[in-house]
Every structure is written in structure tokens, then in C-alpha cells.
Amino acid sequence: MSLSLKHLYLIIQFELKRLFASRKGLLSLVTLLAVWGLILLYPIRLAAKFVLQTGQDQSNAFTNFLGLGSLIKWPIIEFQVYWQIAIILLPLLSIAIAADQTSSDRKRGTLRFLTLRTTRDNIFFGRFLSVSFIQLLIILFTLITTLGLTLYRDASLITLAFTTATTILLNLVIILLPYNALMALLSAKLNSARQAIMWAILIMIVLSAIISKLSTYAPILELLQLFILGFYNADIAKVSGLIPLELAALPLIQTVVFLAIGRWIMVSKSL
């Protein structure tokens, strides 16, 4: 493996420019901010208001509906709702923003210009780190705004709110890494972001359904579920603190496996 820290830094810097300095990137950001504004103002703020006024907690309805079950409460209602929404929406957002790590550059031939100047390893891992960093910025932004909403309601919650936000940040990073890694793999293999998204959905839904069905006949096949993305999300969703190591290990192992396969494809595939 041939990696250069300087090249990784330059690639991440360039990808950040794509988001913050290009018209297309800025448009995506504005759209994201508008959607997040709606989520913050309505589900999160109103749920908190409802619970505080009535004393009834209906905030689990969303995840109950999606089959994730009733969630153990986080200590602050705004973060309870945030956690429920984030664990469903952020993986989907990850698939969308991480879908085109290398595919369109390969199709266009831009990777040929790049590989004259840096290694395929640097491009593959540089793009993966860029996407993960952008995602981290998005999570940070949404958490900070939720923190602001909480403190606006009750400023005395500052210490608890900060600890909760940090815990949720770490949990989300662990949950989302394998999604980014899978998209890095699919992007290295396929020729467009659209194909990568389709394959990601097929892998997560169809493959998962097939394995579930087969495992009813042969319980040993349940082991295959370990390779399904998001298989562990239902358990993680019930966590009310930092994800314990036994739950965190699987997404981290999946990340390593997906990156290893993706890197092999990237290095061996013709450009």
C-alpha cells in the first residue's frame, strides 16, 4: 500500500472545495440546511414541546413504525428525537453523498490525470476520508443546532446536553463508517453514482431479505447477516449511551472489510 499524508491532505482539501466552493456543492448544502431546518423546527421542537406539556412520550412512534422498537430514552428529549431521526436518515444520506467517490471520475477519464500524480491508494482512501469528514461536519452542524434548541429551552442543561451530543456524535460515526466504505467499494467497481446507489439498496434490502428467509431453513446462515449493512442498527438504536464495544465491533469490522475489497478493486482495475 502506497499512501502519502500530504497527498491525502491535498485530496481532502480539494473535495471540501467541491462542497463549499462549487455551485453544485453549495446548492446541495443549501438543500440540506433547508431540510434540516424543517426537521429541527417541527419534529424535534414540537416533540419536545409535546412531551414537556403533556408528560406523554410519543417520540418512539417513528421508530416503532419502522420496526426498530421502543427506544430507551436519552436524557434530553430533543436528542431523543434527534437520535431516532438520525439513525434512520443519516445512513440514507450517507449512501447519497458517498455514492460518487471515484466512479464518474473514472468514466470521464479524470482519474487518468490524477494517477499520473498520485497513487490509486491515495485517491481511494483520500476520497473515503473526504466523504467521512464531510459527513462529520454535517453531523456536527445538526448536533450543534439541536444543542442550541435545547439550551434555548433550558440553559441549565448545558453540561448534560454537551455530553449527550458528544456521545451521539461518536455513535453516529461508528454507524455510518461502513456505509461510506461500502459506497467506496461500489464506486470503485461501478461506472456511476446511480449504479452504486442501486446496488447499495439491493445489497441492503434484497440480500438481507434473502438471507433472512434462508436462515429460517438453515439457522447457520444467520451468520451471514453479519455482513449486511445496518443489521445491527436496531440494537444500536436502543442504546442510550456510547455504543458498547461488542456492538461497535461489527460496523468497524465491516468498514475494514469493505475498504480492503474496495482498495483491491481500485488498484487492480483498468482506468
Partner: peptide, 28 residues
């Protein structure tokens, strides 16, 4: 920096200006 090429039909990224991309290549 020692070997370079004009690959057939390869195109620059349409999202960035020509100067930004060539500068990026030079930095690499």
C-alpha cells in the same frame, strides 16, 4: 513529475475551473 501523458478522450472535472484543477495537479 517525470512521466506524463495525454490519455485519449480523458476530460477534466466539470465542477472546477481549469486553473484550480491544473494547480491541484501541480500541488500533487
Amino acid at each position: 513529475g517525470k512521466v506524463s501523458a495525454l490519455p485519449q478522450d480523458a476530460q477534466l472535472d466539470p465542477s472546477f475551473s481549469i486553473g484550480a484543477q491544473l494547480s491541484f495537479y501541480a500541488k500533487l
